[in-house]
Design a binder for these strands. Structure first.
Lengths: 284, 284
DNA sequence: CCGCATTACGTCTTTCGTAACGATG
DNA sequence: CATCGTTACGAAAGACGTAATGCGG
């Protein structure tokens, strides 16, 4: 049987004229698109694509299938929409727990996307650092948690999936590299970033002298601006708030992985799926 | 996205009114059908079925989705058919190697099914015992081999899948159980069945006295009829040829697994797929 | 060389089967 | 108690990513 996933890939390639562009549109890696098409050709026994310099062109057979596929996929989607309407599925509630700089950056964007796509879904947002957010998930007090510092496999009942990577930045007044501050004072951005800071500095062969500690990334920047030391902040924190008096430099080896966590076996309830979808999209 | 496999299951259930019947129609195990429907309900968030005594009934939502699904699946199938027509895919050649009693029983049935569904496909048939048949597969001299005595994992390049189980039968003039013949003479049905015979008799605590050996199941039955001893034959051999003078009794613990083998990585070429499909159907 | 596509390979998820259990007439 | 459906679990296949390898302009 024709696989609609492969058909969606074919349609995307037909529209864009390139595997790379299709991959971007579908949030796939390039090789995945290539593989899908190769399999589709093998399964159907028909040559669907023809390489032409850079990019590819659809053969007649490929164009025919792409046309039929576009209609079929449309009907599939509209059947899903009809079912949703019948069961009022676009209504519902999702409770999200997320850490502060997420709330200051991509969570509002995701909220907008969610409201556009699922107008009936209520979104409840709670601020919580990762350990508390996961506790809320386990306790059933939240449906989705946006966290960092925890990966898949923490708990068999909690499903954790990767959202994106958040590079670390050095925040300073003078001296754009870590070693410029090896003998200076440091402000630990937050409890969890402290661990991260220690690791990064250890790689450079020194232990930072941490003289101030606060979870508040606004305060951290104010302290740096006041000359109290340097700090390490994730890029999300800088996107949420940027003190004009400080300077920043990305630290190549330093990334924080941001994840979305849910509770229970797949599949997630539809409202939860909708929120996860909205959270994943800003990655594009 | 709605998964067409699940939709096909839903449609089958809608038609038959029962999970068990749908499973039979789709060649699935019962629990697989149950699981597909459970997942479909969870993914869509809609109750689609309602248990009513024995059997199930579709809810309004389930009926709606089943109706839409039937149309979508029809279009999927017809897109595939259109593509096949365009690329003349229903033409082609498949070379089958199979052991004798298979040729005398279900292979002709499969040939008929193949000719009905794919009129343009030429089927070439060769008689070969399993080792030779597999050698032909590896040498590229056959596309599909019907074998027994070999299972999946024999060779990484040869894909072997289960077709059905073929129960063993005791062939005799007098004495319908194995132990009736513990001190009598035996005719080994064929080289490979000899191993099988030894195993079965060992379980009963004796070693059969094998006085005649032949691969030919017609000859075996003639010898039994002549009073030369008892024999063990697979049911396929008895279906292919039944000597009216002998009596037979199924041996509960004795089954021969029949497999289809192909060469190379999946997916198989369309003509090969078509033959495999035709071979699998008689199972129903 | 650079961009686009393919191949190779590893991890995680899903599917489907068998077996055991539960419910219903 | 017989039958239909569900739950539990294990084995095989598939999807998708990263890394490494063609290949055309």
């Amino acid at each position: 049987m024709l696989d609609p996933v492969r058909l969606r890939v074919l349609v995307a390639v037909a529209r864009t004229g390139s595997l790379t562009a299709a991959a971007k549109e579908l949030h796939y890696a390039q090789p995945s698109v290539s593989h899908h098409l190769a399999r589709l050709e093998a399964e159907t026994g028909a040559k669907l694509l023809q390489r032409v310099g850079r990019g590819v062109r659809l053969t007649d057979a490929g164009q025919l299938l792409a046309d039929r596929a576009a209609e079929i996929l449309g009907r599939l989607d509209s059947a899903a929409a009809e079912l949703e309407a019948l069961t009022q599925l676009r209504a519902g509630r999702v409770r999200l727990a997320a850490f502060p700089s997420a709330l200051g950056t991509f969570v509002p964007e995701a909220g907008v996307r969610l409201a556009e796509a699922y107008p009936g879904v209520e979104l409840h947002i709670t601020e919580a650092e990762p350990p508390e957010a996961l506790a809320m998930i386990r306790a059933g007090e939240a449906d989705v948690a946006v966290v960092f510092g925890y990966g898949p496999g923490e708990d068999p009942d909690v499903r954790i999936r990767h959202l994106f990577d958040d590079p670390g930045h050095l925040v300073y007044l003078d001296g754009p590299t870590l070693t410029d501050h090896r003998d200076g004072q440091w402000i630990a951005g937050c409890e969890r970033c402290r661990r991260h800071l220690l690791d990064v500095c250890a790689k450079e062969g020194f232990t930072p002298n941490i003289t101030f500690t606060t979870d508040d990334y606004v305060a951290v920047q104010a302290m740096v601006a006041a000359g109290l030391g340097a700090a390490l902040l994730p890029s999300l924190a800088l996107r949420a708030h940027r003190d004009p008096r400080v300077r920043t430099a990305e630290l190549p080896g330093s990334v924080r992985h941001v994840y979305a966590a849910t509770y229970g076996a797949p599949p997630d309830p539809p409202a939860t799926q909708a929120l996860l979808e909205a959270l994943a999209k800003p990655l594009a």
